[in-house]
Design a protein around this nucleic acid. Sequence first.
DNA 1: CGCGGCTTTGATGTTCATCAAGTAAAGTGG
DNA 2: CCACTTTACTTGATGAACATCAAAGCCGCG
Lengths: 231, 231
Amino acid sequence: MKVIESHSFCQYCGFKSRLFTHLTDEELVYINDFKDEIIYDKGEFIIRQGDPVKEFLYLKTGLVKLHFVGHNNRDRIISIARPLDFVSLVSTFSNAEYPQSITALDKSVVCSINLEAIKTIIRQNGDFALELLEQVSKSSHFVLQSTYDIDEKNLRGRIAYILLWFSKKIYHKDTFELPISRKEIGELINMTTENVIRILSEFRKDGILEISGKSIEIKDHTFLERISKWG
Amino acid sequence: MKVIESHSFCQYCGFKSRLFTHLTDEELVYINDFKDEIIYDKGEFIIRQGDPVKEFLYLKTGLVKLHFVGHNNRDRIISIARPLDFVSLVSTFSNAEYPQSITALDKSVVCSINLEAIKTIIRQNGDFALELLEQVSKSSHFVLQSTYDIDEKNLRGRIAYILLWFSKKIYHKDTFELPISRKEIGELINMTTENVIRILSEFRKDGILEISGKSIEIKDHTFLERISKWG
DNA sequence: CGCGGCTTTGATGTTCATCAAGTAAAGTGG
DNA sequence: CCACTTTACTTGATGAACATCAAAGCCGCG
């Protein structure tokens, strides 16, 4: 990780999400003094489960996973988040300590704003507060819904679901590099590593996928769609 | 359901949660004009999945379940909420329509405040906004955490968990009446009705519980605690 | 009184985790 | 840069946990 000595100012930030468009110029100048921009390499922890919540984090570029240590020390991945996703924030306003870790899956740039400064803005800017509320609400709904969705599917359905998700929501292509290992796929969709591999191979043998290491090419979209909805 | 012609005013409401203590007298007078108090009988829908979100709901007394229709038309219960729990609100600020139904498990009194009026208050009262954010954040964290907790347990662990939850969090006693059917227990902790029954009987035969219809008496707390943590 | 939903128990089968064992790939230190 | 270690990947065999199916009694309700 590396803190950037940034000469950029929040006012001119190209990564201002919809959230920050509600801030006045003065407010942007204000939080400018309370922000750090930090680069994380692939694999680095951004937050460790148990760390005190002292900042409001905002992913500018990259890809991260939100995960925690479950039963038997098995890691469980709650979600994978891109810039503009607020998934990482769900617990920011209700916990003194992070209940989950956040780890970079790719080189990622995070904007870290002092939490008290953000709270000050919330108190004085109602539109900002309301927008934030909507974002937090939306991301927790998304996480919860996908958790339920996934565990209603059988193992093949889960693999189909997650491949389509990567294809449609992250890479917008039929060909992509998996950003996570087989083990992590298992942690994300709740199955063992062995079965992740088995089913990927099965799909490959059936001509639904081409696989080479982390490279995936989806050959039969329709099939995956059907099986993802149970089949 | 029955709308109460209430002569009570928000200012003097004995059920004001921590949330509403942030409001000024004027604000309480303001929302007073936008509220209805409604009584629901056991079994009545308070909200149906798909209804437009037009109100901010607040449970004054009673017990409700939050549930949705999952795969194969099977109902899934997301959580059971008491007064002061904000579970029902998670989607209020991010969805045009309720993604879940809310049903009364007991005679329940709900205070329904026009959503636009609440949003007006959010915009003008920062402390209220911040508190609301914390509450929403806290309840979604709770729901998500318990969902993950539950599906890491085997079936016995789940039954133990839910019995302890009712005992400790709802009734504060070792003897209580289950507010839901065996089928609903299954929908809540993700197992079939048959297995719910089987395991309850097993616990009864082992002297851990006494059961008579919906009445439960926990005889061996320690055992349940141990098995709930996997055993 | 009869119908539908809830409850209960037993028998059967399938999906999935676990265990085992081996190969490949990737990181580490001399 | 090569030996070493660790971590990731892969396939097969086995068994256990759980769902499903079946059948019957029970209860509340119109």
